[in-house]
Design a protein around this nucleic acid. Structure first.
Lengths: 348, 348
DNA sequence: TTAATATGCAACAACGATTGTGCAGGCGTT
DNA sequence: AACGCCTGCACAATCGTTGTTGCATATTAA
């Protein structure tokens, strides 16, 4: 017996004694509209199943100028948020019987562009972009090719975008940090250790600037003011964050009352720093992170976190594609993951 | 001006005043072999670039019965190992100018199979499978369709597979745990608290059984014996693991000398449990995890970890595809990530 | 000078599906 | 009986590329 060959609708047509177009109609569900007798259609479907036939999607795509593929471009896989996004994207794509193609481009603009072009070569039906280095250029290319596209977690002027409500999230997180501050200690007054600080992020970026605004608003509402030194937007580099947290500790002569870590990387550095401090110091420290990491809940230190609603983001993005031109920028509120209250007294 | 249309090689041919086949040859690099004058080829290439032409990969794929797509099937994106794998897979695919298509199938056999069929519909050039619920059925389908495929981190009889050397990794991890045991305390002798335990995993599964063997071998080498109660292969369910760790703690009247967490889920439960214990108890506790999680290094407790070499696994898998029939099962040693020594004395 | 060989390209037939069009036969109507 | 309509399907064009074949010229060998 020959090795199993690939079957085509012509093979099926020959064996049923009908034409390829009839087989096509029977198999892709248009047989009713094409006035194929139900019995004929059923015979074809049965035989196709028996032969293990499956359509050649490239041929279909060539003919229809579509492909059933939807692309998602993101910077990296190895990151909670993006892998959560991949997960939701996959689920949603399959729910719409589309095939997800998720590609990480390492934040390199050239790679982003070449990936976009590649995907367009496959005639993808839509492109989702999360965290690109150069959004507008991508948007330009897509628009030129009339490819429906949408940005996630990143606003792109002129293109539909869905982003997290950073300001509200930051305000809520800050309030949570304030709520769990240790009882006021007069001894710290005026040392700077009685204040809450925000660490990390780049004030020039949209997301960071909104978060800073939310932080300042909550701080001002509670303390009546927010000093300039309370915002340390030192970027996203781990090394820099490590340096800054050490500098802050040295300057204050100890941990501050509370800290708002502006990204997961910064949070990681804060933990790294804290892991070297005696546990006793952590007793009066209130920590929050604008990002989500399940391990945060497993620490001995309560940590408040903000989690982006990845499923909501993806769903909203898809809706934006469905009704084009409706709104260009949609925000989705994040989820606040409050730490459970401290269960252990500072002293064993 | 009309909206930018898609260009084809015919458009280019017309504008240059040549034929489509010449354009095709010029653009896909076969022009030398097809005896096209260099100058003609260059003119075509220049015009194509100017027009922003890009090949229709579906048409090419239809013609050549290939697609440039390579598939990777995995259970979920939101898991360190799998997202690392995705990352490496992406890099390697692009290095071979293939387009990675990574699909998570939630460990559901039906979804795995339908995904495989879907991908085959796109004429993918190869399929990588990591952590499928039903490997042999997938392998059967691929073989029937003569689709090159390879399993990663999971052996499949009759199909090329590349897996981590679980036994060696487990032995090394156990040795590391033993090396960092607290000084022997005569008071604990005979209570069971002087022993090291393995928690989690399913002894019927290949990976777990090798790990258990490695654990037992290291324990026996050091202590002269390994009691049956030291291996608690209670599966991978978080709830069960939580129950078991609590039961062990209750039975022993405290933490054991050391613990080998057999998977990341179990490790998470162990941390959850530990986060409720006073820090003083952790001073004499030695912990290891057969899996990798960067946050493990940020804990106040030193944790040894075993990390699968995802890049190596992926590379090896690709090599297995390149020289078919060479070897069916290849193992790759994992990487041991030793915790740095404890820096803080148990007492602040 | 003639024949053989090389060069440079055009024509054309696939690849496997979709889809607009056409046509035969059966039926009902006037 | 002639006409139109409905049913059920076949035919053929088409999508954009690739690779085979063939056919002119141009060049060299004999």
């Amino acid at each position: 017996m020959k090795p199993t060959q690939k079957h085509t609708i012509h093979d099926i047509a020959m064996r049923i004694g009908t034409s390829a177009s009839t087989v096509s109609a029977a198999l892709n569900g248009t047989w009713k509209a094409r006035r194929i007798k139900e019995e004929t259609a059923q015979r074809i479907i049965a035989l196709a199943r028996e032969m293990g036939y499956s359509v050649n999607l490239q041929a279909r795509g060539l003919r229809t100028a579509r492909s059933g593929l939807v692309g998602l471009i993101l910077p990296e896989h190895s990151n909670r948020f993006f892998s959560d996004l991949s997960q939701s994207f996959t689920v949603e794509a399959r729910a719409r019987s589309q095939c997800p193609v998720i590609i990480a481009t390492a934040r390199k603009p050239e790679e982003e562009l070449s990936t976009v072009r590649d995907l367009m070569g496959y005639s993808i039906d839509a492109l989702f972009v999360a965290g690109a280095a150069d959004p507008s250029q991508i948007s330009d290319i897509c628009r030129a090719a009339q490819l429906p596209h949408v940005f996630i977690d990143q606003p792109c002027p002129g293109a539909p975008s869905v982003i997290t409500d950073n300001e509200t999230g930051a305000r809520q997180l800050t309030e949570a940090i304030i709520d769990t501050l240790a009882p006021h200690s007069p001894a710290l007054e005026g040392t700077g250790r009685e204040k809450v600080y925000l660490l990390g992020g780049d004030a020039r970026l949209h997301a960071s600037s909104r978060r800073i605004a939310g932080f300042q608003s909550a701080i001002t509402a509670h303390f009546g003011k927010c000093d300039a030194d309370q915002v340390i937007a030192c970027g996203y580099e781990p090394e820099v964050a490590q340096t800054e947290i050490q500098a802050l500790y040295a300057r204050l002569g100890g941990l501050p009352a509370g800290l708002f870590a502006n990204s997961i990387n910064v949070f990681e550095e804060v933990l790294r720093f804290l892991s070297q401090r005696p546990e006793i110091e952590l007793g009066a420290f209130s920590l929050g992170c604008f990002d989500y990491e399940p391990y945060g809940a497993l620490l001995r230190l309560p940590v408040h976190m903000v989690r982006q609603r990845h499923l909501e983001l993806v769903r909203t993005a898809w809706e934006l594609l469905d009704k084009p031109g409706s709104t260009d920028l949609v925000t989705v509120p994040p989820e606040l993951c409050l730490a459970r209250p401290r269960r252990l007294p500072p002293e064993g």
